[in-house]
Design a protein around this nucleic acid. Sequence first.
DNA 1: GTGAAAGCGCTAACAG
DNA 2: CTGTTAGCGCTTTCAC
Lengths: 337, 337
Amino acid sequence: MGITIKQIAELCGVSIGTVDRALNDRPGISEKTKRRILEVAREHQYRPDLTARSLARGRTMTIGVVLFDLYNRSFAQLANAIERRSRERGYIVHLTLTGKDPEMEKNCLRQLVQRKADGIILCSVNEGARFEEELRGLLTPIVTVCNRISDRWPYVGIDDRGAMKEAVGQLLRKGYRRFVYVCPPLADRGRVNIHTQEQRWIGFREALEDGADAVSGGQGKFETAVIAQRDYLDALRRLDLAAGTGKTAIVCSCDAYALEVMHDCRSRGLRVPEDVGIMGFDNIDMLKYVSPRLSTVHYDMEEFGTRAADSLIAWIERGEAPSVPSLAYRWIEGESV
Amino acid sequence: MGITIKQIAELCGVSIGTVDRALNDRPGISEKTKRRILEVAREHQYRPDLTARSLARGRTMTIGVVLFDLYNRSFAQLANAIERRSRERGYIVHLTLTGKDPEMEKNCLRQLVQRKADGIILCSVNEGARFEEELRGLLTPIVTVCNRISDRWPYVGIDDRGAMKEAVGQLLRKGYRRFVYVCPPLADRGRVNIHTQEQRWIGFREALEDGADAVSGGQGKFETAVIAQRDYLDALRRLDLAAGTGKTAIVCSCDAYALEVMHDCRSRGLRVPEDVGIMGFDNIDMLKYVSPRLSTVHYDMEEFGTRAADSLIAWIERGEAPSVPSLAYRWIEGESV
DNA sequence: GTGAAAGCGCTAACAG
DNA sequence: CTGTTAGCGCTTTCAC
């Protein structure tokens, strides 16, 4: 199935070395024989066997991608962009999904290394010194995305902390003084990589600290509650949002939560933003179908993808880990706060 | 980087043949030497080089996937399911995206074949005898999904014609007698694969034909308009939905269009379903954030993925193209008709 | 039981 | 300019 250089060599009455020179237009071959060889190759629809080439060259022109899943719209866009850019640059993508299972993630990585992927783009759930040791042992360029691991591996993403800080600053400016922060469980720290969520959480606190100084000269803090658990809606319902003075802003660390929260609040008869303010983070594109429009933080997932691919390829081809600057983000003024 | 069987052989003072027997527990080796070899292999963290194995075995344990993109939620789910199932069964996925570009699609296919993917799951935009000839020339098992090509290649999907027919039957039963059918351009037929859209369109017409017989004994047809163009919203606006008697049902061949249409109608002050009925197709999961709930046809994209993977693997491993029965679908009663 | 050797298809270094 | 040869790391067949 498919003709090989050896067969071409026989057909042309030359050696495989010569065929190789012709096919990969390497120097040291006469125009005449080259033309003849190319002609024969074309006639027989010669297509080099890339697995053989990989073995010989020691490079597979393959990029391994490790993500949680593609349910999340953002991950889908990310994968899309990575594939696009990679193939533009001559690489093909091995997609592997972990389902956020630490062991599965290790399997994926191992698998990719065994298949000799030239580099890997990783959104990790694993974390910790031991995991880093394992990563180092893979001896493969790795670029992290969405979840930073450590300075040793380039990270593509925004400054989540700064972004959240700015966003909450907007709420303060609008006059909000009571806050509920809703996010996924942060307790797994150390076992599971929640770098991004953690940064946002820090950004939230910093914004309030700075705000407290500015607003009341360091006097009275703001009223805040934190909900960081799976059944966040239940927890939220137990809170009396109307108690006290002033309107509450529910700061959600991601749009997915914000949408659920908004839905739930409204089903309880709370008007948004009249009775309660809600903000999200991520600007997932589902938002365009939702009213009132959610106020949120936007960043470009596609850019994450192309940047991650570019950085990884730079590393692969230049041999040294590149440093990647934080990408841009911006506050989206909706109608929900 | 990484130890090889040759090195293990030297370390153990045996031949590589023996090492191979130990590592792949093949018969013809004493328990004792086997144990010793495995011990050494474990110590040195031996991981077989899968590119080398591929070359030697003539199988890569790789499945190529060719889709349009991952923007569409359904494709993302599809890709997700394919990856999951494939890796469960020992295969890894090569993801390639065509962006609906026929030439790009051919590139992807060629690339996958050169990389010796054991089989390919394809959602094709190309179509026609010549393309089929090319596909045949690839000499690789191919399972089609979402867009059928011909009987030569197994197709995973639902009976779109039947499903649309049933759905429109629901509308007739609800009393609708005026219809606007909205779908992507159908004019590209022959050049571009629009099998699915075509089937739905046929289903729509059949439903009305059957309905005409049933309702008025073959007398008077229903009032219908068809919009099959990129700027379908503009076209729709030009229609006077209120004219004539009875309420109009806008039958959209996909939810994406239905959502846009619904949004547009409401921005024009039309109430759904009081003034106009709208139905979609696909039951994309964005719908859960939309009210009124869209009436639509549901099918399980994940099932497409696992079935496609299973069928392809069956073909790869058993050597003969499997036949795949149509998958299940069901009408979702929403509030939009 | 074990070893030797011939591939898989391509690359790359070295002779001529 | 062209041919030869030795790999890449693993599999597989055939001797011993």
